[in-house]
Design a binder for these strands. Structure first.
Lengths: 206, 206, 206, 206
DNA sequence: CAATAAGCGAGACGGTACGTCACGTCTTGAT
DNA sequence: ATCAAGACGTGACGTACCGTCTCGCTTATTG
């Protein structure tokens, strides 16, 4: 009696929608990212789309969520290097969204441009409680990874025992988001390095 | 020759609109923040409003921009204390917007809620280049304040000479914004204190 | 293959909109004839309305066009009588619109009042080429009717063979429109009779 | 005590406004004929304009009224010729307005184009009672001219004694207005000639 | 000659409607 | 039950033009 009845969903459809949505989102930005438009390009009815995601925001999050899961943190034994690498990965992800919705000409000049797409997604998270939880879970996982790595280093005596790993992550990741969202300053591996070094001065054992 | 010509703008009108807009923005949130509605409550024609701010986004930014200018940083000679105070001020401002558009019941439960309003404003800044510049200028000023304070402390030997004040501010302010925008964790004076202390471990002279 | 797809338009909706629009047009006149208002009274979204008629003008024309199609010309064998009847029908239609948008008090005093509604519709036709063609087609059909009737009479020897039916219609219908649009003088069956008789007789002494 | 006080109106201003208004009206048509626009081009404040004409419609009528007064009817002893000339004058005036607001390309193809400007003015007359009277007076004068000419001819036995001069004018002028307003067919001297001849002859077999 | 009154340019203002856009829901027929 | 197509309700957006108003300044007439 638990058998699925009726026509089954086309498994390709999900993928096609997500692909098109991703393109639109990154190429045109959030404002031009329209349900009607996505549906049309994907060759899909709006109903089909809404059957899967209850809201434009949900679709957008689904798209972005996909591309963000693959971040990892290594344990090479060198915490500093591993953190820099971690930061660089995040920065790369953010920089990818930075281009969203901007004409090809502006692309080079990243300075002084905040990443609207990230902000829109955060706003979306605030609009829908379920998206909020979802996004936060995603970030919690990512943070937990880094925290675990730092704690491991702590046990090995690489960092001071009284330092708070969570605080450290806030400082590091925070600086990246602050730059990309608020000040619009560029973030790259060089910046990540400076950042980690500066923070390390505080966490290294004396 | 520089004579003002034509009927001057009613200065009350500006104030009234901004006041009403501010109320709406904080009480109802960004989605319910409607130009028509603001105009009606303010007893003003929509055109009058659009004559001053070309867009809903512009108006919103103008409203928020006003309330953010008054942040200052003292120089009591105790950099740590001054920075904590500075951070606490920013946190207070952010917390105020955190409540925006939420029912009275939810107000207590701040944990796990990102500040949608801030995100919307950042998004707005990204949508309109002119707003972007405006907002960034505002933040540059604020950052310059803190940086100047830190540099002064540096000249007095309070902090290590090789530390980068900008980086420090990124770390501190970044953490606040990261929490309020991304992780939704609470920010208060206690957190600000921890933050400054943790960062200080890195900047204090050995 | 020629299958109708998508949700079909609600046929009631068209009718309801046209009915309401007609009422508004005749009761309030063209200036007070508002798309928003019509939509509201008809219990229909403005978009629904604009999906059918791209413009207020188009809607107005559609309304009026409807009520004008039913004019006919009989062939009783008596051309004079048939033409008078035809003219009277047109006059009646015009007189109906003459009342449009006027307070109940003024209704009696038709003398010295031109029919603003007709003028507005003609103006609308001039504003939009497509409406122009539409209206002209409508009139061409009506004129063709009368011309055919006259030609039939000509073949029977009722009228001179060298007379131009089109010219005759211009003279007859023209006089009606001239009165209602320009001079504001009343038009009724009596006037129609005089008109036809005068046209029939000519002015030259025999 | 009846002396005018205060600064006298600049007599040039009236002329300049009317000139500019005329240009706009004929070149751009009624829709593009905007008070703000006229004022700006004429280098005049809107108040100055509204001090002279209470309404856009009034200004438009003032402009057109000017160019229409000069029509006359001669008495060469040949009624037919005089009437044709009269009609041709009216037709010329109407044809001038026909071009109003149309791109240069369309100008040649007059067939199938109704004169929106005339319709707009008639509509304006219907909107404002005072304009209505004004316009009707203007037309009454013109009609009286023709009627008087016809009656003179009647006294000389040129036309039948039982013919109604007013009816004749309705027929003649009416046909012109009918063509230009409703059917959009061209009107020229040739048509005027046919018209007069037909009206003279009547349609009945002799 | 000063007071008074009106003209004038500039532009703010209230008002009202316009036409557009996107969202998310619903209805139909076909698969 | 899914899907494509597309109508529909809703609600806000930003724009346009109207006619009125309020400034500060200029130009006449009058006491």
């Amino acid at each position: 009696m638990n058998a699925r009845r009726g026509r089954p969903r086309d498994p390709d459809t999900d993928a096609r929608i997500l692909r098109v949505a991703g393109e639109q989102l990154l190429e045109r930005g959030y404002t031009a990212f329209t349900v009607d438009h996505v549906a049309e390009i994907a060759g899909v009815a709006k109903t089909t789309l809404y059957r899967r995601w209850p809201t434009r925001d949900h679709l957008a999050i689904a798209v972005i969520g996909r591309g963000q899961e693959e971040i990892e943190i290594a344990d090479t034994g060198d915490l500093r290097a591993d953190l820099i690498d971690f930061m660089a990965q995040i920065a790369a992800g953010l920089n990818r969204t930075r281009r969203a919705g901007r004409a090809a000409d502006d692309q080079d000049d990243q300075d002084g441009q905040s990443a609207g797409l990230v902000a829109e997604l955060v706003a979306a998270a605030a609009r829908h409680p379920d998206i909020g939880t979802l996004v936060r879970d995603l970030f919690d996982k990512r943070i937990a990874l880094a925290v675990a790595r730092i704690e491991a280093a702590g046990r090995r005596g690489e960092v001071r025992s009284d330092s708070d790993p969570h605080l450290l992550v806030d400082q590091l990741a925070g600086a990246l988001y602050y730059r990309i969202l608020i000040t619009g300053k560029p973030i790259d591996r060089r910046y990540a390095t400076h950042l980690v070094d500066a923070a390390f001065a505080g966490v290294l054992p004396r």
